[in-house]
Computed example of a mutant assay.
Amino acid sequence: MGNILDIYTDFYGLTARPFAIAPDPALIYWSSAHKRAYSLLEYGIITRAPITLITGEVGSGKTVLIQHLLRSGAEDVTYGLVSNAQGGRDELLRWVLLALGQPAEAGDTYVDLYARFEEHLVAEYAAGRRVVLVFDEAQNLTVESLEEIRMFTNINTGTDELLQVVLVGLPELRERILKPGLRAIAQRVTAAFHIPPMDAATTAAYIAHRLACVGGKVPLFTPDAVAMIHDQARGVPRLTNQLCDFAMVYAFSKGSPEVDRVTVQQVLRDGVFFAGIEPAALSSEDETARVPVFRAGREA
């Protein structure tokens, strides 16, 4: 028996899975919010903003925007991506140097690391390039690390700044930076945007777009199914992908040419969509009943 994922793509005439979980810039859906977020990223880089801040819930599409940015960078910009850096300022500098392709030996002192970092920035500037450091999952950075990043943005030639920073993280990152103790960092943030959840219309357009990208020629999800997916995924792209993918597997297993509301309810009732939904809330006798959404242990 072949791979079930290949079988279901063949069954629906698709060239690939439309709702794979891994971020794929080739499948990016440019909702109005994502367009604004990306425009702000570009604006921050073009205007040499010291720090640009992008926030959004888990699975809101932040990482795919960053990947798109890194792939479409200008020739005069050198990007360094630091993902989920942790530790003190020595460890932070090691992460940064490695992201820029520079050595960071275990025996190097902080002074050694900083000198190498500064030398690299000067060398890039002399070659006509600017350095942009992107910190993904930046909500995990300590206050000490955030302060160190602010100090990095002070490195300059006297007339030109040698480094720009993009901080990408969950909403609590924005909240932390706005606290009085981090006022110096907040003052360096000259561009900031929060990616909101998708509304119902955007979810429908998102699903249609992902299907079209892999050869989908007809609507595979009924309007009622799309409405339930939006309710249960709460407008989060990653959760929408998960639920749509499971629903397509279930529809394929039944030989159904479309994904309807009942199929989505079956996925939810079986508990395979593990996103805070309580399977017991689904009635096996009445599959047409609305499925309640549970948040923080209570029905919404």
Rank of each mutant, 00 (worst) to 15 (best):
D224I: 00
V226F: 03
V226I: 12
A227W: 08
M228C: 05
M228D: 14
I229R: 00
I229P: 06
I229V: 09
H230F: 13
H230A: 07
H230D: 12
D231N: 14
D231S: 14
Q232H: 13
Q232V: 15
A233T: 15
R234T: 13
R234K: 15
G235S: 08
G235D: 10
V236L: 13
V236D: 10
P237C: 07
L239Q: 10
L239M: 12
N241G: 10
N241E: 15
C244S: 14
C244T: 12
D245H: 11
F246P: 11
F246A: 02
F246L: 14
A247R: 08
A247M: 04
A247T: 09
M248K: 01
M248I: 07
M248Q: 06
V249H: 05
Y250M: 01
A251P: 00
A251H: 04
F252N: 03
F252T: 09
S253Q: 07
S253G: 05
K254A: 10
K254H: 07
K254F: 05
G255L: 07
G255P: 14
G255K: 05
S256R: 01
P257V: 15
E258M: 10
D260Q: 04
R261K: 06
V262L: 05
V262Q: 04
V262E: 11
T263G: 09
T263E: 09
T263N: 09
V264C: 01
Q266T: 11
Q266Y: 13
V267R: 01
V267L: 05
L268E: 09
R269C: 08
D270M: 13
D270H: 14
D270P: 15
G271S: 12
V272T: 15
F273I: 07
F273E: 08
F274S: 04
G276N: 04
G276C: 02
E278A: 03
E278R: 08
E278I: 03
P279E: 06
P279R: 02
P279S: 02
A280L: 00
A280M: 00
S283Q: 10
E285H: 07
D286F: 06
E287K: 00
T288L: 09
T288I: 06
A289G: 10
R290L: 14
R290I: 12
V291F: 14
V291D: 11
P292W: 13
F294D: 01
F294L: 05
